[in-house]
Every structure is written in structure tokens, then in C-alpha cells.
């Protein structure tokens, strides 16, 4: 099993910060770690990690490697790794994720699908 420390998304090397007084309109596609504290309208995609803070408002489909969500997301979420949903999070959309934790108090309205890794499929087939 992974320890809690290992499961946390790594934000040591953040290269994009969408601050609280900023609104992004359009398709934001990045390759690095992203912190969102403001507003995003469109789509948000990164091959790195994503952190959505409690004041953030996102109306977009979201894709990332690992993510921690504390803000409001209206749209579908696809996380290829670990997703941490905190008590302050409000999610209105479907979630696809490999590994998940939800804190008490979080609001989720949508379907949740667990992605299964290639190794686990092989194990199940055996």
C-alpha cells in the first residue's frame, strides 16, 4: 500500500499559478504543475499535477495526473493518478480516477468511475 505521504500530489515545481484575481477563458493546456486559485472557463488539461484551491471556480472539463480539489468544479474530471477531494470541494460532473480520497463534507454530484491500471487488469485476468 502507498503511504499517505507518497499519495500526495507533488507541488514542489509549480510553473503555472492562476491567481485569485484572474479569469482564464479558453483551452488551457499545460505540461507542468498548475495551481488554480481563480476562475477558469473552457477546458483545463495538464500532464502534470493540479491543485484547485477553495476560492477557485472552474467551469471546464479537467484532466491531470494527480490532483487535489478544494474549490468548485462544474465539468467532468479525469485524473490518471490520485485525486484528493477535500471537505470544501463542490464537484458537479463525472469523475474518472485511478485512486481517490474524499474528505467528509465534500459535495459531489456526478458519476464516479475508477480507472484500473494495466497491471491490475493483468492480475484480475490471472
Amino acid at each position: 500500500m502507498f503511504s499517505k505521504q507518497e499519495q500526495k500530489a507533488d507541488f514542489k515545481e509549480v510553473e503555472t499559478i492562476i491567481g485569485p484575481s484572474v479569469k482564464i477563458k479558453g483551452d488551457f493546456h499545460g505540461t507542468n504543475n498548475i495551481i488554480v486559485e481563480g476562475v477558469v472557463d473552457g477546458s483545463l488539461k495538464t500532464s502534470g499535477n493540479l491543485r484547485i484551491s477553495d476560492k477557485a471556480k472552474i467551469t471546464a472539463n479537467v484532466e491531470a495526473k494527480d490532483a487535489k480539489i478544494s474549490g468548485e468544479v462544474k465539468g467532468n474530471i479525469k485524473i490518471r493518478g490520485y485525486l484528493e477531494i477535500t471537505a470544501l470541494a463542490k464537484i458537479f460532473g463525472d469523475i474518472e480516477v485511478l485512486s481517490l480520497s474524499i474528505e467528509r463534507g465534500a459535495i459531489i454530484n456526478g458519476k464516479c468511475t475508477m480507472l484500473v491500471s494495466g497491471e491490475e487488469i493483468k492480475k484480475q485476468q490471472k
Binding site: 484572474v22 479558453g26 483551452d27
Partner: peptide, 28 residues
Amino acid sequence: NYSVEILDKQGETQIINLLPPGIILPIK
């Protein structure tokens, strides 16, 4: 692909090539 709207009218936007002295970035 996308536009950035600044909701707060105070402050400044900079496009930096060489980091000017005295500017402290919020992250390393």
C-alpha cells in the same frame, strides 16, 4: 488558445525575460 482577464484593476502585469532585482516570485 486562451485569454486572461484580470478581475482586479490594481497592480501590474509583467512579461519577464531577465528577472529584475527586487521582484520576489511567489514560488521557487
